[in-house]
Computed example of a mutant assay.
Amino acid sequence: MKKRKKTDSWTKEKRKGSTKPDFNDGLVRLNKYIANSGLCSRRDADKLIISGMIKVNGKVVTEMGIKVGPEDSVKHNNKVLTGEKKVFVLLNKPKDHITTMEDTHGRKTVMGLVGGACKERIYPVGRLDRNTTGLLLFTNDGEMTKKLTHPKYNIRKIYHVLIDKGISPKELNEIRKGLILEDGKAEVDVVEYIGDGKNKKHIGIELHSGKNRIIRRIFEKLNFKVVKLDRICYAGLTKKDIPRGRWRFLGLKEIGMLKMLSGK
């Protein structure tokens, strides 16, 4: 028996009087495939198909109702589209979990907390240290991940820091100006006492840098030890209604906000 070509999934049937494609079980309608890629809605996908802006396996497709499979190549403006639904999961990370897909030493990982969230294979966007708590985003959208972690897009992060002793206003000002660390200047957007400022161990700090252990190293430079570090805001997302160790899916508005921030 001859091996079926991948183009058979969407070519027209040969039978007399039929202009419908030859559908196979398990395939997905082209407009849904396009929508799942994150390019646009199903309705807008229909418009792209009708206007001849979609190619399947190198050929322009303009008919509605076409179905495609995982082996088919779907392109818009010569860009390959992937039909897997884009998923975004927001975790409130607890302590003692490392940000990795798996660990050969048997330590607890963040994937153990979100592994059952969806059937899609999701990955952490950036990382948090083992004992840093707070917001950690996961997705299967590789393009979005690259942009959210790229310095060019200046993604805002806010942390609540507890240090081992009170810090003076003068020392806070040194941090504002930018301390010189071993890998260059540590740029900070905002650093302030939390609340009324009476407890000078609790500090709020906002920055865009993604450098490794940047906050801990900033305070270590001034001979302070970070006792607790909690990320309370990431790219406009907050911990509201997410208990420690729990997660939730992002809503459409939140996903739209991330796309705006990353210029996607």
Rank of each mutant, 00 (worst) to 15 (best):
Lys86Cys: 02
Gly38Val: 09
Gly69Leu: 08
Lys165Phe: 09
Arg121Phe: 05
Gly178Asp: 08
Asn154His: 15
Arg4His: 03
Pro151Ala: 03
Asp183Tyr: 12
Lys5Pro: 04
Leu252Gly: 06
Thr82Val: 12
Asn78Lys: 10
Lys75Arg: 12
Lys16Thr: 04
Ser209Cys: 05
Val89Met: 06
Asn223Arg: 02
Lys14Gly: 01
Gly204Pro: 04
Lys228Cys: 07
Leu261Ala: 06
Lys75Thr: 15
Ser168Cys: 12
Asn36Ser: 14
Lys170Gln: 15
His105Gly: 13
Lys16Glu: 05
Glu120Asp: 12
Lys146Met: 10
Ile54Phe: 05
Gly58His: 10
Ser18His: 02
Gly58Lys: 11
Lys253Met: 04
Lys165Asp: 09
Val188Arg: 13
Val80Ala: 11
Val114Arg: 12
Asp25Ser: 09
Asp72Arg: 06
Tyr123Pro: 10
Ile167Tyr: 04
Tyr234Thr: 01
Met53Glu: 15
Asp46Pro: 07
Asp196Gln: 14
Lys95Trp: 10
Pro94Gly: 12
Lys6Trp: 00
Thr133Asn: 09
Ile215Ala: 13
Asp164Ala: 06
Val74Ala: 12
Trp247Glu: 07
Arg107Thr: 11
Thr100Val: 11
Met53Lys: 15
Leu148Pro: 03
Asp189Ser: 13
Gly263Val: 03
Lys228Asp: 08
Ile255Gln: 06
Ala235Ile: 02
Ile218Pro: 03
Leu179Asn: 10
Val56Glu: 00
Gly245Tyr: 03
Leu207Asn: 09
Arg176Ala: 13
Met144His: 00
Arg156Ser: 12
Leu135Trp: 02
Arg15Glu: 14
Lys6Ile: 08
Arg4Met: 00
Lys75Asn: 10
Phe88Asp: 01
Tyr234Gly: 01
Arg4Asp: 05
Asn78Glu: 15
Leu261Phe: 00
Glu102His: 11
Val125Leu: 02
Val60Tyr: 07
Gly195Thr: 11
Thr99Ser: 15
Leu113Ile: 08
Asp8Phe: 03
His202Thr: 07
His150Ser: 02
Val68Gly: 10
Glu71Cys: 08
Ile218Trp: 00
Pro151Ile: 03
